[in-house]
Amino acid sequence: MINQIESIIKQTKVFSCIDCGKCISSCPLVRAGLFFSPRVIMEKALLGFRFLEDRNLWLCLTCDVCSEKCPSSVRFNAFVEAIRDLAIKEGVTKYCIPCKSCGKYFATLPILEHIKEAIKKEDVNAEYLMLCDRCRRLYITKNIYGIDALKV
């Protein structure tokens, strides 16, 4: 597994981080007031620490803003996605949310918790939140427009 992480590091250029901190200052999670640092995740990967169970790894929105800002062209988004895939392969799924309909891992627990917290007062169907984006479209067409897309 260490070799796989090593090759992900090489592919996504995580080693070339120069500690400038632009990723943190541009991260929407940090702006929303969460404690989150791409650099800590990368540092743990670089030093060979076990970090797959790290809550922070599963907090990232993969919005790619940090990669746009990075002067050393670190592709943090690609790094996080590759590491998450690796974690799922390794069986680390405690932060993964499977789609209620199709079973695909579509969201992470910290993000879902955050969304639920943010829309607590709104009237949102709990079932709708637990669907992956594909199933969500089917859900909308079926329950709101009354069309069963699978049959059409």
Partner: peptide, 13 residues
């Protein structure tokens, strides 16, 4: 410096 990082040398501040 970039080359050293690519070679897999780890830098700790």
């Amino acid at each position: 410096y970039k080359k050293a990082k690519e070679e897999g040398i780890r830098f700790i501040r």
